[in-house]
């Protein structure tokens, strides 16, 4: 009976100086953001207090896109370099992005109830976001196919690249369709907001981006440890098998 082989160099946790600094910056940015967005900034003239949910909703969406962008970059590098490192990075981006996209849908529904009078409408942005969620759910299923790790990584990479087409479609669905959903709130060239609202969104975008980066790094390291464990387990089994054969030959 053999125990699970653990790589001798495997760390006991996924933290490092980088993630601790990033984690501290994330915590500080969340305190500042939540204090300003929930307490200090005034309620909206039209949306009243429900606008504060929007300060969370939009940064969540932007961070989900960030996660899916990491998947795109990782997938391209998997095909270019045949790299297990980037395969794990692509998977981490998709997992974190998927969770955030799910939270986008939940916060959007909660915001829609007081604003539109319903949790769900057949709005292009909402529908496109739901489809985006399902596309990346499919990507994660592909990552669990019963295949050789390299083959699986390549197939997931192709799907991860093609799946990204849906990100800009979702992002710009408001412009593409004439929609019930309000126009894009944040834009580089034009914004409908000013003052405290813009500050709340900007703080939210920064805080959520830091949090997303922190999550992706940790999820990547968990995935990498699993990969190393699988690899070292296989190597140990081969060495053990060779040892058995050598012993038999000696006898």
């Amino acid at each position: 009976m053999t125990s699970i082989a653990v790589p001798p160099s495997a760390p006991e946790h996924t933290g490092s100086r980088l993630t601790r600094v990033l984690g501290a910056a994330t915590a500080v940015s969340w305190v500042v953001w939540l204090t300003y967005g929930l307490v200090l900034s005034p309620a909206d003239v039209v949306q009243s207090e429900s606008v504060r949910l929007f300060y969370l909703h939009v940064p969540l969406a932007l961070s989900a896109y960030l996660g899916f962008t990491v998947t795109l970059v990782g997938s391209i590098l998997v095909l270019r370099k045949n790299s297990a490192f980037w395969d794990q990075m692509a998977g981490a981006g998709a997992e974190v992005g998927l969770v955030l996209a799910g939270l986008v849908l939940v916060t959007g529904a909660l915001w829609g109830r007081p604003t539109w009078g319903t949790y769900w409408v057949w709005d292009p942005r909402i529908t496109a976001t739901t489809l985006l969620f399902l596309v990346y759910l499919g990507y994660l299923v592909v990552r669990r196919l019963d295949l050789d790790a390299e083959v699986r990584a390549r197939r997931a990479a192709v799907f991860g690249i093609v799946a990204f087409i849906n990100v800009p479609i979702t992002r710009y669905s408001v412009q593409i369709w004439n929609s019930l959903h309000q126009e894009a709130t944040l834009s580089l060239t034009d914004t409908e907001m000013d003052g405290s609202q813009l500050t709340s969104f900007a703080l939210g975008a920064i805080a959520m981006a830091l949090f997303t980066t922190w999550l992706i790094i940790h999820r990547f390291r968990v995935g990498w440890l699993e990969y190393e464990l699988d690899r070292s387990g296989l190597e140990s089994a081969i060495l053990e098998r060779r040892g058995e054969r050598t012993a038999t030959e000696v006898v």
Binding site: A128, G138, V141, V142, L147, F159, I165, N166
Partner: peptide, 23 residues
């Protein structure tokens, strides 16, 4: 082709194709 040769491809295929083809 992503799920070619895999068990369960008949059920997995629609999950991959239908949402991605919505646009």
């Amino acid at each position: 082709a992503v799920v070619a040769g895999q068990r369960g491809r008949d059920t997995l295929g629609p999950l991959l194709v239908l949402p991605a083809m919505a646009p």
